[in-house]
Structure formats: structure tokens, C-alpha cells
Simulated scan of single mutants.
Amino acid sequence: MSFARSLITLLLTLVWLPACADSALRIGAERGDLYLPLLQGERVGLVANQTSRVGGQHLIDFLRANKVAIKRIFALEHGVRGDVENGGKVADGVDAPTGLPVVSLYGGHFAPSREDLQDLDWLLFDIQDVGVRFYTYISSLHYLMQACADYSVPLMVLDRPNPNGDYVDGPVLDPKFRSFVGMHPIPLVHGMTVGELARMINGEGWLDGDARCALTVIPAAGYRKGDHYSLPVKPSPNLPNDLSVRLYPSLALFEGTTVSIGRGTRFPFQVVGHPSDTQGELVFVPRSVPGASENPKYRGLEVHGDDLRRADQPSRFTLRYLIDWAGRTGETGPEFFSRASFFDKLAGTDRLRLAVMAGQSEAQIRRSWQADLQHFRQRRKPYLLYRED
């Protein structure tokens, strides 16, 4: 990389650009005037999926049209085109529309190797996140930052609004429960964009060996954290609309229980049900859905429960559903938490599960994490790029 471009990168990294200078919202990928000059004549690796778009154009096509030399694409969970189900295998291969080589970073090989990065001048990250700790794109971001730090490749993040970025809530991860579905000591709903979180990972020394990644963030313009942001492209096969994205923090915890949240239906993460329930009015039968839920919980069985699309639902993280259903299935606590270890990894602690089993109220449980939330809010302040009002 030339000295001039290194200097520009450093200035962008230190100054962080005026994120709210424009009144109209423009995501980082749409601010080509800020980052295309840095990529011209450089060899670029791209971390992208179906959400990586510039207006109506995929970022891959936008970059190629602007003479950016993409050497390879790195695929995370759900694949480059977003057609791989939750937890499904993402394989190395070729991106059919472009013929570009694809390197999988999901399914055991979470970080690029030295060979994957050795001929690159930049690694470019543009993935829509949903602002929840266990949504694995931010775990992949961590591994990418580690590799970039280890092998001296600069990372550029094209930032996007967080559709759950208007608040912070939930338990803060206890390091004893660190896993790929929770790598950082942040709340379940952290209220940060990917760019802000990348800055925090760097600044707090969360990379191994206290490493630092050469990081450039291209922020969104005209964005404030309280703004409603409707995702133009579904971020993964089982989050098809805004409601599912807003309910996701509350309902994903059921993945560690015997309760279905509608995988294998047309309305995943918008319903709650169990075969033994007698209170709910909704009836649904989960089916195999290729690319989304090929083996959903209770496949082919009649499930009874609640339709969360038909009533005013909390627009923020709540324990209301979890506490309610812990008493509706007719199961004891240990039976209800059928995947207790996984539930604790999602929650980032075993205290939530134990509190529900002990019959504590939502108010009691919430009080237990308020001090940690206050500490986190203070800790994240130096890394924020967008106004909170």
C-alpha cells in the first residue's frame, strides 16, 4: 500500500468522519467517494452476503463496475447469497454469478489463514447485522480482525444502521460462557453498529495478545440510534421482516428450550408454540423448508400457541414470553430447558435460566443486570459514531 493511501487510512481511522453530516440516510457502502479512492489499484478481499447492496446493486457488482480488483469473497453463516440455513454448512467454492473464488469462514474454519490473506491489500467487510450478541456475524468480525492484525492486512468496515440499535438490554456475557454465539462482554442487545463494535474490540484489547487491527470504518451518514431502520433485504433465511428482527432478541432464547418459534413456517420468529399447549389460539405445523429450516423442531406435528403478529407486542427485549412459556408446557424446569448448555451460551450466563426455574419475576431478573448495563454504557462511549437522541 502506498504511503499516501496509508496516510488517508490513518486519518479516516483517527477522525472517524462526520457520521451525521447529511440529513438523508446513506449507509457506508453508498459513500463510495470516501472509500473507492483507497481501493483503486489495490487487491481486495470481500466479506459480503445478500445484504451487501448499494441501492439496487450488489456490492460485488458495484465494486467491479468501479474497477476494484476483488481477489476473493469470504462467506460467513448463511453464505454469500444468503441461501444456507441456520447452522448449515457453508463450503468453499465459486460464486456462480461472478466466477470469483469463495472461502468459507463458517463451519469450523472461522478465521482466514495466512494464505487466504497473503496477496491482499485490503479486507472489506459489509454485512447487515441485527444488533444481538448471539447473531454470529459479529463473532466472525472478531476472527477477521484477529487475522488482519496477525497478518498485517488493513480491514475496512462499511457501516450500516442497527435495526435494534435504539436501546441496550439483557445480561452482559460472563466470560465463562464465551462461545461463537457470544464472544464479547457485551449485553444481549448491545445497541452498537458493526463499525462501532469493531472499534470497541480494538480499543478494549479483546483480540488475542492485545493485538490491534488496522481498522477503517466508513460510517453511515444521516443516522441516529433512535431512528427506525427497516432492512431492505432479509439478513438471514429465518428473519424475513422487521417484526421478526425486533422479536429476535426475545424469541431466540427459546432455541435452548422445548418451545418452537416458528421455524419451518412462513412466519419464523413471529410465533411461539408447543404441542401440549392448551391456551393459545394459533395452530401451525412446521415443515422442512430448504435453505431455511430443513429439520425444524416438531416437524410434521401440530403445534399450538400464540401468534405475535396479531397483537401489540413489546418492541424491545422482554422476558415475558420466556417466563410465560416456562409454565405453559407442563414440563419441569430441567425438561423445559432441553438444551440448557446452549441456552446459557445464548444468554451469556446461567443466572437467567436458574432465575426462571426459581420462579423469579421479570422485574427481579432485570434488576440483577442493571449495574452491568450501566458499566457497559459508560465503557462503550468512546467508540460510538452516532448520536443517541
Score class of each variant (00 low, 15 high):
residue 63 L to W: 03
residue 63 L to V: 01
residue 64 R to L: 13
residue 65 A to I: 09
residue 66 N to P: 04
residue 66 N to G: 01
residue 66 N to A: 04
residue 67 K to Y: 12
residue 67 K to G: 09
residue 67 K to C: 11
residue 68 V to M: 04
residue 68 V to D: 14
residue 70 I to C: 14
residue 70 I to N: 10
residue 70 I to T: 03
residue 72 R to D: 14
residue 72 R to N: 15
residue 72 R to C: 15
residue 72 R to W: 01
residue 72 R to S: 15
residue 72 R to Y: 09
residue 75 A to D: 04
residue 76 L to M: 12
residue 80 V to Y: 03
residue 80 V to C: 14
residue 83 D to M: 15
residue 83 D to L: 14
residue 83 D to S: 15
residue 86 N to W: 09
residue 87 G to M: 10
residue 88 G to E: 01
residue 88 G to F: 00
residue 94 V to N: 10
residue 96 A to N: 14
residue 98 T to G: 10
residue 99 G to V: 05
residue 101 P to S: 07
residue 102 V to Q: 01
residue 102 V to D: 01
residue 102 V to T: 02
residue 103 V to E: 10
residue 104 S to N: 03
residue 106 Y to C: 08
residue 106 Y to N: 06
residue 108 G to D: 13
residue 109 H to E: 11
residue 112 P to M: 02
residue 113 S to A: 10
residue 114 R to C: 06
residue 115 E to H: 10
residue 115 E to Q: 12
residue 116 D to N: 06
residue 120 L to F: 00
residue 120 L to I: 01
residue 120 L to Y: 03
residue 121 D to F: 04
residue 121 D to Y: 05
residue 122 W to L: 11
residue 123 L to P: 06
residue 124 L to C: 06
residue 125 F to H: 07
residue 127 I to V: 10
residue 128 Q to V: 07
residue 129 D to P: 07
residue 130 V to A: 02
residue 131 G to M: 03
residue 131 G to L: 05
residue 132 V to I: 04
residue 133 R to A: 00
residue 135 Y to S: 05
residue 136 T to V: 15
residue 137 Y to T: 05
residue 137 Y to V: 10
residue 137 Y to W: 00
residue 138 I to Y: 05
residue 139 S to C: 02
residue 140 S to C: 05
residue 142 H to Q: 12
residue 143 Y to F: 15
residue 143 Y to P: 07
residue 144 L to A: 08
residue 144 L to T: 01
residue 145 M to F: 07
residue 146 Q to H: 09
residue 146 Q to S: 06
residue 148 C to W: 03
residue 149 A to P: 00
residue 150 D to V: 08
residue 154 P to I: 03
residue 155 L to Q: 01
